[in-house]
Amino acid sequence: MMIDPKARYMKSHEWAKHQSGNIFTVGLTAYAIEQLGDIVYMELPEAGKKIDREGSFGVIESVKSASDMYAPLGGTVREANTEVRDNPDMLKKDAYETGWLIKIEASSPAEFDGLMDAAAYQKYLETEA
């Protein structure tokens, strides 16, 4: 799946999905993962870390480059997916379910509505990315 209809998106190719209450899962889109090529290293935050909306929450590195990953919502990190961190190849198989990266407890859940929906992200990929 290149785009998950249930997720919302950032121009920098992160996605967020509502899980329950104020908890959102966050990951990187299949498009971004494909563009990166072989992913060889990731850094994810510890649980409890506070992050700003659009602030860097981690780093993903391919052979050729290191890229920051940006938070679609501000809040507190509740969990990081260490299994994916230690086996980044998993991202290629499924970017949106098993490939989630962090769970954030959002301080302003309404930020979710300000993100691009699937159709808008699709259009963004076709025109700008």
């Binding site: 090529g37 072989d38 060889v40 050729k64």
Partner: peptide, 10 residues
């Protein structure tokens, strides 16, 4: 070509 579909690692 920077890489083929196999990827840099392969």
């Amino acid at each position: 070509p920077i890489q083929y579909p196999q990827g840099i690692v392969a």
